[in-house]
Design a binder for these strands. Structure first.
Lengths: 288, 288
DNA sequence: TCGGATTACGTGCACCGTAATGATC
DNA sequence: GATCATTACGGTGCACGTAATCCGA
């Protein structure tokens, strides 16, 4: 068996051509390399070098050996990289969601109940989420339909209804409810990165009507500084996210009503029992 | 970089389940293994073990790591094996021949002129020899036709003529020359492993007429102990291989006359110049 | 004379083993 | 008490560096 430090020095020599240069590359002294190369030949049991009195170089066998040594070093490094990545993955729980609010809820829940885990989360559409669960990209996902897939364990999470918060003096403010079609001529403030909600507006409202903000701060400031209408939901309203001088009116279209489902692989259901249990509590709390 | 001795001890542990058993397998003490496994975890930078106070076992990451470690050990051993094999091959010159006499001649010549080389030699037919030269199975070959192949360097070596040594009282002994067809009713002593010569008899003489001996000793004893005819050649006769009470008569069929060619790859011609030169001398000596 | 390999020699660290301790069944 | 891991401690081999030597262009 040949230790790595020898292979490392050997490859350094193969790459530099002289022991002197190799010794710099490998951070050892020149005499140390002389010894190491002798030891290496001894361990292989065959000559690897052509030596003239003040010159040393690889012979044919040495060149082959250097190739193998390089590969062995690479394999060693890859082993380390892979194991570290595996460990990191095993400490990380990846959560995908079709919408930001339930994602935030579930991230909070996981943080509380699995404090040893790193959390990686992102928004994605249902198709990608379900595929992601199956190929272990995600361990937990929030989708807006029950896929009735035998590989997946699904639990109803909570519902969210779209509202529009509109200036109390606006003619539409008098209405008890609205349809998306009623909003065509408005200019409406909206957050970017709201997942599935974007799909709902797509094709129903003209591009020009949506004042999409990439940062929540910008969104908030514009809400304060203007009397522009903005999209809201019953969940946010329940948490107090309303603005003075505006009234919140529900949107009646069926697609403005979402039901979220929390899902994981059937086979991993037990690992996330505590999360699912807390989600059931959450459901009662929010709905009740 | 993680040294091999650690991976070795790690794999020993993975295979035995306890540090105690692993310490026997790896020929180290138990405390030494404790330290090594700690060091290994430190080098990987991630936990590899589940530890209860008097029990240690691989966690999920550890199992993966053990797999990789095992592969790394295998790769290291394969590297050594391959390099040793390469070295051995580079010290060995493989010679193939269609007939035993020129093979013996050329082996002797190589032994004299390249004493540092190990020699591996065997009999084969021309097709296999030429293929063998091209795929580096053979470095030198003796064939009985000049293939006029641009990849090969070919030099006429010497000729050999088939004789039959027959009891001086046998009717055929009076003849100046014979044809194979004349021998149909004889029972003839013959050596096995005579390469291309076998092909010459094939189909020309009945199976039953050939008393094939696997060992040269058995052949010699039977020659002495009987008055049976046996196959001979001008070359052997020139070296004094004759038997008392027998006369040697040449066989006239054209296929009973062989011309040998010494061949190597055109690209390797220079390496074997001394052998080819001596073969030219040999030719003069034997023919002259 | 300089670049580069080797030899000579002393040192320190890292790995090792023995012995003792701790923990769990 | 048996089994097994860990800690403590002392020893030693070996890989290292410095310095000196040797060799060839």
């Amino acid at each position: 068996m040949i230790e790595y430090y020898l292979l490392q020095q050997f490859v350094a020599f193969a790459e530099s051509g002289t022991l002197l240069k190799a010794s710099e590359k490998a951070n050892v002294s020149q005499p140390s390399l002389t010894r190491s190369m002798k030891k290496l030949e001894d361990l292989f049991g065959v000559p690897l070098f052509d030596r003239s009195n003040s010159r040393i170089s690889l012979n044919a066998t040495g060149k082959i050996a250097a190739e193998y040594a390089r590969r062995a070093l690479d394999a060693n490094q890859e082993m380390i990289d892979f194991v570290v990545a595996f460990d990191r993955k095993s400490r990380t729980i990846s959560i995908g969601s079709c919408a930001p609010l339930p994602l935030h809820q579930i991230v909070t829940s996981v943080q509380e109940r699995m404090p040893e885990k790193a959390i990686s989360s992102e928004l994605a559409d249902d198709g990608k989420l379900i595929r992601g669960l199956k190929n272990h990209t995600y361990q937990l996902a929030i989708i807006h339909e029950d896929p009735s897939d035998p590989d997946l364990f699904c639990q109803r999470y909570f519902e969210e209804h779209l509202y529009i918060s509109i200036d109390e003096n606006h003619p539409l403010a008098k209405r008890n409810s609205l349809y998306l079609d009623d909003l065509k001529d408005l200019r409406i403030l909206m957050n970017a990165n709201i997942g599935i909600w974007n799909n709902i507006f797509e094709g129903r409202l003209p591009e020009s009507s949506l004042l999409t903000q990439n940062s929540f701060n910008a969104f908030s400031e514009l809400v304060q500084a203007s009397s522009l209408p903005f999209f809201n939901t019953d969940q946010y309203i329940a948490m107090g996210y309303e603005a003075p001088g505006r009234v919140s009116i529900p949107i009646n279209d069926p697609e403005a009503h979402l039901t979220y489902w929390l899902a994981c692989l059937e086979s991993e259901q037990r690992s996330y029992r505590s999360i699912f249990d807390s989600a059931r509590g959450n459901l009662i709390k929010i709905i009740g």
